[in-house]
Design a protein around this nucleic acid. Structure first.
Lengths: 340, 340
DNA sequence: GTGAAAGCGCTAACAC
DNA sequence: GTGTTAGCGCTTTCAC
């Protein structure tokens, strides 16, 4: 447990002043080359590293971003996170991670805690409970306190901030339209995220596609629920009617459950049933048949979010206008849908 | 962008000294109730929060743990991470996350960067490149500098530190034995992680089980490679021989590729082929048939790691002995293996 | 070319 | 019961 080297120590051991050492190490013009060399060599020997906390305190900023993720086990968030991490790191920022576990209380508490000079800004996706209860004051009060926020994916219009989203409505429209194009007449919509902004938008996209193709919305084909057995049973009942030839699943759970239950109930995918889902690419490829998905470019969402935040943090003038970046999705056709 | 409240400001506005405010807010006996009440009320009004950086600097600790993850997209690591996060949070620690991307250089650089007073200790799993090149000095020099490290899953004997691992050898033995018990005679071993400590141990467990059951090790049944198409082809060739009735896959990729290729090549799982893999539970259940796995209790690994580190950080005496905690795995029988 | 001193926000030993 | 002061490690202005 040897104490870390400080300017003070080095100064003392070398018989110079603290400020000389500081200047020498930052290659100041004021210091003679000889002294600089001597000090630098000694510092390297002692493995000197400037203390971050002291610097932070001095400059009143931390070069750290707080990232609040609703659930890191969701691979979408994990991917966005990796995008944030990489971009932030490149631009010299550290990441403090906190997981809200979809809880409003936890989200509030974490953000307040980190807003004590621990981070310069936040990147977050709204916790489910927060979005359901529409309790957004804590965001606004944090922004008012001078800490900028960037929201991604799950956002709200009630907070003025930078945002990065996917064109959920259009993506859902395209996915549904694709199912129609390959001949589906009875397309079910499956969702466990109807309480989220993104869930609602995807539902809208589905409805819009049906409408434009003059297909009546059939309420029996719309299944909403939680990730539980009751939901599974509903899917099975729906499949049992054999009146479905397409499934549009707006979340990973719905997509994979539908696939599995259909296969178990003797459906031939994609012959009898075509499935498209919002889901993670890596695992979708591992399924048999592989799942056609709406790819959300998660790492890019992370990258853009980090850049938005850091741009704001480093901006000369304050109060640049808030931006909303919309990332284009892509329909990845795999084996769970017929080819055109 | 209103400036955050500081002790100094509050003191000035209230016409008292800084230390009075500080003491009042920490409920010191020295201050009269009346003053305390007054100060507390005013502080609450101003939404005062003590500045973390200043406290950290003062106390020479950060209450922050640096977590170095090789790859957050690997759900095992994501799960361990969530265990770490939750436990650390409960005990009052923040998490700074860094992703090594399996690179030695990056791992070194990240750790050195964070070792400048940004974190009190590290929790990490060794990057693949680090483990392959056996380049472990940076760990030792960080430990020597006074920052403790806890390693999990991918570890090395060449670094003295606390460790949390799974009983890889025994788990692999049990998995192989189970395949033998349900009647498999020709058990293939698939691995894309033979360069990792855990990969080697799992291979040992496989060999031990064969040996004890007097089954000759057949080199043609052992497939090692990277996550690429060449590896996929090798699997397909192996399956084409139809000389395999069991697969023990020591990593997620191998397990899922084997399943998929077997299904595509007309195998009936588990009738013709039994598959067990080290893999994530959530997704294994989503496959059809669901995959029997060795469950590694990832969140518990994270929890134990965090506790080990924090125990050491908060220990009164220095140099408690280093501990290695071994977590028991569980064989989760699903539909990719016959029932006994 | 080098050093002294102030200050970032906080705590705590020590005065009064 | 309240205030003064020093100091955590660093940078930076100003003096010499």
């Amino acid at each position: 447990m040897k104490a870390k080297a400080t300017l003070k120590q080095i100064a003392k051991e070398l018989g110079v002043s603290v400020s000389t050492v500081s200047k020498a190490l930052s290659d100041s013009q004021e210091i003679s080359q000889a002294t600089k060399d001597k000090i630098k060599e000694f510092a390297a020997l002692k493995n000197y590293k400037p203390n971050l906390m002291a610097k932070n305190l001095k400059y009143q900023k931390t070069n750290t971003i707080g990232v609040i993720i609703p659930n890191i086990l969701n691979s979408f968030f994990a991917k966005v996170f990796s995008g944030i991490e990489e971009t932030a790191r490149k631009r010299g920022y550290n990441i403090v991670t906190a997981i809200s576990n979809e809880s409003l209380e936890r989200e509030k508490q974490l953000m307040e805690m980190l807003n004590n000079g621990a981070v310069d800004g936040f990147i977050l996706s709204i916790a489910e409970e927060t979005q359901m209860t529409k309790n957004f004051q804590h965001y606004n009060s944090i922004i008012k306190s001078g800490t900028p926020i960037v929201m991604f994916d799950r956002i709200t219009d009630l907070v003025k901030s930078d945002k990065v989203i996917v064109d959920d409505l259009d993506s859902a429209f395209d996915a549904t339209q694709h199912l129609i194009n390959i001949g589906c007449k009875k397309i079910a919509l499956l969702s466990t995220i109807d309480n989220l902004s993104v869930g609602k938008l995807r539902f809208e996209g589905y409805k819009k596609a049906l409408e434009l193709n003059k297909i009546d919305l059939d309420i029996n084909l719309i299944l909403m629920g939680d990730e539980d057995e009751i939901y599974d049973q509903k899917i099975e009942v729906l499949l049992a009617t054999k009146k479905v030839d397409g499934v549009f699943a707006v979340d990973e759970h719905s997509a994979t459950r539908a696939m599995k239950l259909a296969l178990q109930n003797g459906y031939d995918i994609p012959k009898d049933l075509n499935v498209i889902g919002f889901a993670d690419g890596a695992w979708s490829r591992r399924l048999t048949p592989s799942l056609s998905t709406v790819s959300q470019h998660a790492p890019e969402i992370g990258e853009k979010s980090a850049n938005l935040l850091i741009d704001r943090l480093t901006a000369k003038e304050e109060a640049i206008e808030y931006k909303t970046i919309v990332i284009k999705t892509e329909l990845r056709q795999r084996d769970s849908t017929r080819k055109l």
